[in-house]
Amino acid sequence: MTRHGEDVGRWVTTQRRGWDRLNEEQRRRLATLGVKKAPRARRAPAKTAAASGPRAGGEAFQKGLEALQQYIAREGVLPGRAGVQEMPDGDVRRVGVWLANQKQRRDRLGQAQRAALAELGVDWAG
Rank of each mutant, 00 (worst) to 15 (best):
W98I: 12
E119A: 10
M87G: 03
R93M: 12
Q111W: 09
N101Q: 13
P88F: 03
G96E: 09
G110S: 13
V122F: 14
G96W: 10
K103P: 02
M87K: 02
Q104M: 15
G90T: 08
V92F: 07
V95Y: 03
E119K: 15
P88H: 01
P88R: 00
R108V: 09
L99F: 00
Q111D: 13
K103F: 14
R114V: 00
K103W: 15
L99W: 00
K103M: 15
V97F: 09
A100I: 04
G96A: 11
V122Q: 10
R94F: 15
R106Q: 11
L109K: 01
V92I: 14
E119T: 02
K103D: 07
G110D: 11
R105C: 09
G121N: 06
G90Y: 14
P88Q: 01
G96F: 06
V95N: 01
R114N: 02
A118L: 04
A118Y: 05
R94A: 15
N101Y: 11
R108W: 08
Q113S: 07
Q113D: 04
E119D: 11
Q113L: 09
W98R: 06
A112T: 08
Q113R: 06
V97S: 13
R105V: 02
G90A: 11
R106L: 08
Q102M: 11
A115R: 15
L120V: 09
R105K: 15
Q111P: 07
G90Q: 12
D89A: 09
A118K: 08
V92R: 10
W98C: 06
G96D: 06
A116R: 08
V92D: 00
M87C: 05
A118W: 03
G110T: 02
D107K: 14
G110W: 06
Q113I: 03
A115M: 11
G90W: 13
R108Q: 13
D89P: 09
R106D: 07
V122A: 11
D107W: 10
L117N: 04
R106H: 11
Q111E: 12
E119V: 00
G90S: 13
Q102G: 04
Q113M: 06
D89R: 06
V95P: 01
V92M: 05
V97A: 15
P88Y: 01
A112C: 03
R114I: 01
V97L: 15
D89M: 04
